[in-house]
Amino acid sequence: MLAIAHWLEHTSVSQEIQKALWLIPLLQTIHIIAIAMALSSVLMIELRILGFGKSLTVTETAARYAPWLWTGLILLAVTGLALIIGEPRRALPNPAFQIKMLLLAVTLAVAAVFQVSLVRSTAFWEGQSLGRKLAGGFAVIVFFLWCAIAIAGRWIAYMHTA
């Protein structure tokens, strides 16, 4: 029996499974660390827009955290792509995955518009106008939009495609 077990352990199929057993949680771990980078960077920028931590200006805060946000997003894309290649049928036809990609597209557009606006209308973002105060409320919505992407991602494991 031991000889059979030993032989089986060294077949290519088994090796693939052994690797996969560690590989998928490992990729998911990197994916989660990247979520930590992106989501915490978003939190810091949104909090500053809301008026917390005024020792830095909005521009300074964005300069500090936006590179970490985009680095996190690149890591998320790379590990996410690897996870899709590993289990394409789990992700691509899954409604949770499709909703996640839609939410991602919308949120990325908002983030890009914000970064451009921060450069073009710096005075608005550093100011105290009524519109600027409304933007504070909008920041809360945008933060939950980022959270919704993570929620849709977790739901991929639970939504089964027909």
Partner: peptide, 8 residues
């Protein structure tokens, strides 16, 4: 989400 914020 919570652990991502803890770690970040």
């Amino acid at each position: 989400i919570a652990l991502a914020l803890v770690i970040g």
